[in-house]
């Protein structure tokens, strides 16, 4: 899922200072699962915005709401049910949600309440780690299912580099060297010889280096 974390509250108070009627809008997708922008976090942010405004002697009205997802037109369209009740939206969705609202609501000011950080998973409660970088040309079949794009600090396609020590990455002693892990896993699976294959220079256009990406599925469009 997409992982996000709430921006410092003072930053959100600052960016929304001009507005008196704010809709704090959660998303019931990824950010609910990673506890950054679901209904519970909407309740907290609404309360903090009210307190922040009161502290400065400003009057604000804060509405609380959420959409099933903020990354689908049909759900963003359902914002109509709050028409006239706000003069700005503070979106707690990932950056996709904020962009979608901006794309679809030409007259609505929308602000991000979270920093969208990465695609990841939760190995234990309260912890999330990056696993995939959405590079558009997956190589996991060559690397034992472990991603060198997202999990190698240098995104090396032929690793490890010379800095790997005792299974740890040279950028930090707490970061695993993913290439060491790829090696160990392939060895365990009796496929160590895969490490001998040299990956050619990679074409990074699919990873966004060729501009914004788009997917079109003919079988799904009419």
């Amino acid at each position: 899922m997409i992982i996000a974390e709430r921006k410092p509250i003072a930053e959100i108070v600052e960016m929304t200072r001009d507005h008196e009627k704010i809709l704090v809008l959660g998303c019931r997708g990824c950010v609910t699962v990673c506890s950054a922008g679901g209904e519970r976090e909407v309740e907290l942010l609404a309360s903090l915005l009210r307190l922040g405004a009161k502290k400065e002697g400003r009057k604000i009205e804060v509405q609380e709401g959420s959409l099933v997802r903020q990354c689908d037109k049909e759900y963003v369209d359902s914002l109509d049910s709050w028409n006239g009740e706000y003069d700005a939206i503070v979106s707690m969705a990932c950056g996709v949600g904020v962009n979608f609202i901006a794309n679809l609501r030409s007259s609505t000011m929308v602000y991000p309440a979270v920093n969208t950080t990465f695609f990841g998973g939760s190995p234990e409660q309260g912890i999330w780690t990056e696993q995939c970088a959405g590079c558009g040309n997956c190589v996991l079949h060559l690397t034992g299912g472990l991603c060198p794009v997202a999990r190698c600090a240098k995104s090396l396609m032929n690793g490890p580099c010379g800095g790997s020590q005792n299974g740890k990455c040279e950028i930090h002693s707490e970061v695993d060297c993913i290439w060491q892990m790829i090696h160990d896993r392939l060895e365990h699976l009796d496929r160590k010889e895969q490490m001998l294959e040299v990956a050619p220079i990679r074409d990074w256009r699919t990873a966004g280096h060729g501009g914004p990406r788009k997917t079109k599925r003919d079988d799904l469009t009419i």
Partner: peptide
């Protein structure tokens, strides 16, 4: 006790 309960007390 939820965080929201504690914030509500301040509100």
């Amino acid at each position: 006790i939820q965080v929201s309960t504690l914030l509500q007390a301040f509100e």
